[in-house]
Structure formats: C-alpha cells, structure tokens
Design a binder for these strands. Structure first.
Lengths: 122, 122
DNA sequence: TAGCAACAATTAACATGTTAAGGAAATGCT
DNA sequence: AGCATTTCCTTAACATGTTAATTGTTGCTA
C-alpha cells in the first residue's frame, strides 16, 4: 500500500480515511454499521475516523430520528472532491499491480488470497 | 495472522514482540539495527518493544563498550522458554496455510507476493 | 409500567506504524 | 584542538487495531 499512502500524504488524509470516503462516495449515505462493514473497520476505529473526517468537513453525521441510537454518515462536497481528484491516480496505482504480475497472475493472486481468508474483501 | 494472535494472547505477548523474540532465539545476541531488519520493524517501534520486553525480563540490553551509541540485545532464559513452548503451535498454524492451499499453491502465492514486493521477507 | 436485557456508539487503555525532531556519541576535516 | 557532520537511538505526536468497559436508547416482559 505504500504508493497509495504516498499519494495520500499530499492530502493530509490517511489510508483508512480514504477508504471510508471511497465507500461513502460509491454508495452514498449509510448507517455506521454498514459503513464499518464495507470499509473493513471496527467500530472504535470508525468512531475516531468519523470524528476526524467530520472535523475536516469531509463528512456529516446525522442521528436517526426513529432510533436515536443510530446515526447516518454522508460525504460532503469537499470529501467528494478529494475522491474525484485522487481516484484516477489511485486506480492507476492499482493497475500497476496488474502490470507487474500480468492479468493472469493478478487473478491467480486474488484467488489464492481469497482461499486463505474467504470473504476478506468480497 | 489472527490465529497467531489468538495463541499469543494467552501469553500476554503481542505479534511483534513474538517476532522479535523469535529472531533473537534463532540468531542469538545482535545489535539493534540487525534486529530491526530481521524482524521488519522501524527503529521507533523497536525501541518501545525492546523496552517492554526488557520490563518483562524477556530480553537484556547491553551497551557496546567500543561505541557507546550502540547496544546489543539478547534473549533471556524466560524469553527462550516462551519461544520453545509456543513455536510448535505456531509452526502448526503456519502449516495450516499450506493445508488450505496445498504445497504447490502455497509456493505460488509466495512467488506472487515476492514479485509484488521484492525483498519484503527474503 | 417499572425493570432489565439487547443494541448502538463511545470511551478507555494499551500496543504499534509512521514521520519528524532531539540528544548523545563518534568521525572527519581543518 | 575545534567544530560540523554523521550515526545510533530515543521521544514526540498523531492515527489506527483491539479488547473491554461505559453510556444512552429501545423494546420486551413480568
């Protein structure tokens, strides 16, 4: 992941914060549990990351009126902008993996990892 | 690594502390730089881990008399005992990876990872 | 309806990764 | 010798993973 981290260091955003933003950008507003699932984070981590992102005005948090234990998180325009600006670069980095291995071996690698840890990243 | 972490949780030792102890058990007394290399740790991490292990009486630190900036680290009998007691179990867990994938695919996986990140774990 | 179990989030406590800044000792050069 | 540089290690500051304890809400049930 180091090339990704490098790219992100310019933005002052970490790998995990990036992951959360990407999930929000892709799927839109969602509750915390779903967000934790989709970004592969534990709740305590998500709590802190959400707080950080909120402070940076990259997401907004809103309580569920029906069940006030719950909350929803949504990406802001500023957050979306970060994703939009960087995701081509990120995609290119990931494509680099395929370049190194070749399409076939890349798939093979994903297969092997999947078998080691089924469902890790569906 | 989660099965490994599980095993270690019984001993009150973390994954990285375990790694440091294993390297020391295998190669014996060595300077910090070599230890950091062999256990894939950055210096600041190693400083803290060494301090923790020293507090637990699992390693000893000694200054190099010729160059007092340097120090050597050595595993104690207590540390060695932990390794001896747990390493069969750990080996068995690693063998589990091979069981899941089979010998051939296990080697294939190591190959692919090596190509992605040459020299990560020689 | 009062009381309690279940659930969602948060906080706490500890260990680590990571980058940057500091401090002490050794080296090199004048 | 005197001083800048380099080297080795430590601290600091921040973000995260992890487990456990806590807080606030719901909802069920006696």
């Amino acid at each position: 992941m180091s090339p990704i981290r490098e790219m992100l260091s310019e933005t002052g955003i970490t790998e995990q914060q990036w992951r959360v933003l990407r999930v929000l950008a892709e799927f839109g507003r969602m509750d915390t549990k779903t967000l934790a699932d989709r970004s592969s984070l534990l709740f305590p981590s998500l709590t802190r990351i959400a707080a950080t992102l909120r402070d940076k005005k990259l997401v907004t948090q809103t309580r569920d009126d029906k069940d006030r234990r719950r909350q929803f998180i949504e990406i802001t325009a500023a957050g979306q902008r970060i994703i939009d600006e960087r995701s081509p670069h990120a995609a290119q980095i990931v494509a680099g993996f395929k370049d190194v291995l070749g399409e076939d071996d890349y798939e093979r690698l994903l297969d092997l990892l999947e078998r080691l840890d089924p469902g890790a990243q569906p």
